[in-house]
């Protein structure tokens, strides 16, 4: 039976609290863990991108969500990926309505795509802020040895780096083969999918469900969408469906890559501690 390293029970509780608070409000998990600088950074980044995105797109993001409740109540407004920034999305959904639904013409929002990308970024970043807060809680509960030549990166940072560029988190943990393989495979799949869809596939209005998966591609995906935002289909392309499948799958694969980067960095971190504890897997 292989053995693996695991944080102590008290640290696991702190990690769970950090994740829960971060999902409620990005930065709250850091704040509770007394990382006030990071708390401000995540809070400001997630809320500014959400509000700015909603304003630029005339709150039309709300057309893609649904309310769920019991007995006629509207308990939860379900909108992905913005819902990753949970509490503020709930508040805004109750305070505003889509300007398009109210009767404005679609061409009244020239920066609609930028707005969608920004508000979607907010939700994705909020989810990754939870991973970052978890890494900070682990680092606080399990400090590494002071005699190390090179301090390992925290698991949360490895996950966030994957969002910047697929494979970057693995590269920073020293796993260069995995970094090149994963980065090349995921980014290659995404770009091949975009090419099969004539670079017009990353569009929330046309494919709102696929778009959610595409958003998890991270910074390369967001930039590609912004650069290609003016492109439209002029014919039905033969491999358009395959292109959509590839780009969306690439986004979800990137989530798996981030999870792996987190897990490997966590193992490295715990291996570098003075009081590492072996448990049976």
């Amino acid at each position: 039976m292989p053995s693996t390293l695991a944080p102590e029970a008290s640290t696991r509780e702190r990690i769970l609290a950090a994740v829960g608070f971060s999902i409620l409000i990005p930065g709250l998990g850091h704040f509770v863990g007394e990382r006030k600088g990071w708390a401000m950074f995540w809070f400001a980044t997630c809320q500014i991108t959400l509000v700015l995105g909603l304003i630029l797109a005339g709150f039309t993001q709300l057309d893609y969500g649904r309310t769920f409740g019991v007995g006629g109540t509207n308990l939860i407004y379900f909108l992905i990926p913005e819902g990753g920034n949970f509490l503020v999305t709930q508040l805004i959904a109750r305070m505003y309505e889509s300007l398009e639904y109210r009767g404005d013409y679609p061409d009244a929002f020239p920066f609609r795509n930028l707005g969608y990308i920004l508000s979607g970024m907010s939700g994705v970043l909020a989810m990754f802020s939870a991973a970052h807060a978890a890494g900070q809680a682990l680092a606080k509960g399990h400090p590494v040895r002071s005699d190390l030549a090179k301090k390992p990166i925290t698991p949360g940072r490895a996950a966030v780096l994957t969002l910047l560029f697929p494979g970057l988190g693995h590269w920073k943990t020293g796993r260069k083969f995995k970094a090149i393989l994963l980065g090349g495979a995921v980014l290659g799949l995404f770009l091949l999918g975009m090419a099969l869809g004539d670079f017009a596939d990353f569009n929330r209005q046309r494919h709102p469900y696929y778009w959610v998966g595409q958003m998890f591609m991270g910074v390369p995906g967001w930039l590609t969408s912004l650069v290609a935002s003016g492109r439209n289909f002029h014919a039905v392309l033969p491999y358009q469906d395959a292109g959509l499948l590839f780009t969306t799958s690439a986004g979800f694969f990137n989530v798996i890559v981030a999870l792996d980067a987190f897990h490997r960095a966590e193992h490295d971190w715990l291996s570098s501690g003075p009081k590492s504890k072996e448990v049976e897997a």
Binding site: K178, L181, L182, L189, Y239, A242, S249, F253, V257
Partner: peptide
């Protein structure tokens, strides 16, 4: 296209399961 997708899927899963080249 199937072979390309299979390769990427297998690469992601294998990297998730294993850590040695």
């Amino acid at each position: 296209l199937l072979l390309v997708f299979s390769f990427v899927l297998a690469a992601v899963l294998s990297c998730y399961r294993e850590d040695e080249k």
